[in-house]
C-alpha cells in the first residue's frame, strides 16, 4: 500500500530525514519509535502533505500513485488520514460543519452519494457515543477550548467517520490519561481491518499495549536504525535508546 524509498527531507536547509525506506502493506500496523528530534513527526507530516519541508531525494508511492505530488486534500480524499499531534483550533467553525464537509468530500471522491443531513447526523451521533464523547462538542468550534485529551479523541472521532485506508497517528498517546488512552485505542482498533494500514508514531511503548503493532521501527537521526516485531518496543522500554548505540544514542542525548 505504501512504499517509501530513500526519502530525504530538510527544513530551512537542515536535513531532518536522511533516507527512509519503509513498506507498509494492507492490514498491517507499524509503530515508529525514536527519541525526540529523530524525525518521526516530520515523516508523518510529509506523508500528509504539510508545507515547509523540502524533499531532497526519494519517493513515496501510495496505492501505486506518487503521494508527494498530491495536495493534502487529495491525499485525504484518497484515504490518507493524519491524526495531528497538536490538533489545530479553528474558532468559529463548528465540528459538525467540518465533519460534514470532510465526509462528503471523501464520498464524492469515492463516487458514492453524499449523506443527507439526517443520515449524517445519525452516523455522527453513533460515532460520538462510541468515542464516549458529549454530543454538545459537535456544535462547539473545532478544538476550541478542548482539553488535550478531548482534542485527541476528536481526532480519532474524525478518523472513525472518514474511515481512512492509511491512518497516520502522530503521538496520539501523548498527554492522555489511562482512561482516555483506552478510548482512543478502542477507536483505533475498531478500524483495524485487512484492507487498512496504520502507522503509529510514538515515543513510548505504552500505546502499543493497547494497539498491537506488526512491526516496530526505530528512527534516529533521520534514518530507520532498527526494525523488528512488537518485542522490539518492549526492549526499548526496558533499555532506552542508548543500547542501539551510534546515531540513536547520539540523538537521544
Amino acid at each position: 500500500m505504501l512504499e517509501i524509498r530513500n526519502l530525504c527531507a530538510e527544513i530551512d536547509g537542515k536535513a531532518i530525514l536522511r533516507g527512509i525506506d519503509l513498506d507498509v502493506k494492507a492490514g498491517e500496523v507499524h509503530a515508529i519509535m525514536g527519541p525526540n528530534g529523530s524525525g518521526k513527526s516530520t515523516l508523518a507530516s510529509i506523508l500528509a502533505g504539510r508545507d515547509g519541508y523540502t524533499i531532497t531525494a526519494g519517493s513515496v508511492r501510495y496505492q501505486g500513485q506518487d503521494l508527494l505530488a498530491l495536495p493534502p486534500e487529495e491525499r485525504a480524499r484518497a484515504g490518507v488520514f493524519l491524526a495531528f499531534q497538536y490538533p489545530v483550533e479553528i474558532p468559529g467553525v463548528s465540528n459538525i460543519y467540518l465533519l460534514k464537509a470532510a465526509v462528503n468530500a471523501r464520498r464524492r471522491h469515492q463516487g458514492i452519494p453524499e449523506l443527507d443531513a439526517m443520515d449524517f447526523l445519525a452516523l455522527v451521533k453513533d460515532r460520538v457515543r462510541f468515542m464516549e464523547m458529549d454530543e454538545s462538542m459537535l456544535y462547539r468550534a473545532v478544538n476550541e477550548g478542548f482539553s488535550g485529551g478531548e482534542k485527541k479523541r476528536n481526532e480519532i472521532l474524525q478518523m472513525t467517520l472518514l474511515e481512512p485506508t492509511l491512518a497516520l497517528l502522530d503521538e496520539t498517546d501523548s498527554g492522555l490519561d489511562i482512561d482516555a488512552l483506552k478510548v482512543v485505542s478502542k477507536g483505533v482498533n475498531s478500524l483495524r481491518t485487512p484492507e487498512r494500514a496504520m502507522i503509529l508514531v510514538t515515543h513510548y511503548q505504552r500505546l502499543l499495549d493497547y494497539i498491537k503493532p506488526d512491526c516496530v521501527h526505530v528512527l534516529a537521526g533521520g534514518r530507520i536504525v532498527k526494525s523488528g516485531g512488537a518485542e522490539l518496543a518492549l526492549e526499548l522500554e526496558r533499555q532506552g535508546y542508548a543500547w542501539l548505540g551510534g546515531e540513536a544514542a547520539g540523538v537521544a542525548r
Binding site: 485525504a76 488520514f81 464537509a101 474524525q158 472518514l162
Partner: peptide
C-alpha cells in the same frame, strides 16, 4: 496556515 492545512488534511479543497 495551520488552520488551512488542518481542513485540507480532512479533504476540503483549498
Amino acid at each position: 496556515a495551520a488552520e488551512l492545512f488542518y481542513l485540507r488534511s480532512r479533504g476540503l479543497d483549498e
